[in-house]
């Protein structure tokens, strides 16, 4: 009975695409939420453009965060960097107590307004779940498997590329998934520091007391988050198909 959820997702994607391309079609839906003849559809910019900018920001930050976090996690799990392992665990624990909004707000004094502080905040906050999950994936490998990889004569690099990373991939993907979902939300707040994101629509609604704007901005981000979350879940299932789907 996999068909129903898949259909629901496809329908959600189609609806989202239609809304971004032709928002005016949906005008009657949002009309009842407005007062005093206020516009029912966001009219201060293109919804599609904002959504793409939003996604681009999250994608760029997550890609950077993934590269750095995975590299760092690999480093501290090698003999050379083992000294840093306990500290890096503690730092991840501490780092995750920093609220995303605070990270965003604290980036502004350093780099000013615009997309840059948002990018930095998304990047920094995105590092933590990916680093933590990569660390978990690389340190909880079955000792028998690691031993076997050594015993078959793989070099350290071959072990990493052929055994350790593929086995950790589902856990790493779960970390990236979490990063992306948090990033989508944090990017929304990014519009308070003048980054071009869907948050603009919500903020405009909050400022002009226009619930229609708030709802459409919220819905776009929510549907995006759910779809992307599902996409990563499916990807994780492919990466972990060898486990018999138990993870």
């Amino acid at each position: 009975m996999r068909a129903l959820p898949t259909l629901a997702r496809l329908a959600a994607l189609a609806l989202l695409a239609a809304f971004l391309m032709r928002p005016d079609w949906f005008e009657p839906v949002f009309r009842p939420l407005t007062e005093n003849g206020a516009p029912a559809i966001y009219n201060q910019g293109s919804l599609l453009g904002l959504t793409l900018a939003h996604l681009g920001l999250v994608a760029l930050a997550t890609a950077g965060a993934t590269a750095l976090a995975v590299a760092l996690a690999i480093l501290v799990t090698r003999p050379f960097g083992a000294e840093f392992l306990p500290l890096s665990r503690a730092l991840v624990n501490i780092g995750q107590t920093f609220p995303p909004v605070a990270v965003l707000a604290l980036a502004v004094p350093a780099v000013g307004f615009g997309a840059t502080p948002t990018l930095i905040a998304l990047f920094l906050y995105g590092l933590l779940p990916i680093f933590e999950n990569t660390l978990t994936g690389l340190t909880t490998l079955s000792p028998a498997v690691v031993e076997a990889a050594k015993g078959t004569g793989m070099t350290a690099t071959q072990r990493l590329a052929r055994v350790e990373l593929p086995l950790a991939a589902p856990v790493i993907l779960a970390g990236i998934r979490l990063s992306v979902v948090i990033g989508l939300a944090t990017a929304t707040i990014g519009s308070t520091v003048a980054a071009k994101t869907v948050g603009e629509v919500i903020i405009a609604g909050l400022l002009s007391n226009n619930l229609a704007f708030v709802l459409q901005g919220g819905l776009i981000v929510a549907v995006l988050a759910v779809l992307i979350y599902d996409g990563f879940t499916a990807l994780g299932r492919v990466a972990g198909r060898w486990s018999g789907g138990t993870s």
Binding site: V181, T188, I202, G205, L211, L215, G217, L219
Partner: peptide, 20 residues
């Protein structure tokens, strides 16, 4: 889980309507 994936600012915004 689904609720958790809805970004905070969106959920805050979405709740304005029913509570209003």
């Amino acid at each position: 889980n689904m609720i958790q994936t809805i970004p905070s600012i969106a959920l805050f915004g979405l709740l304005i309507a029913p509570l209003g």
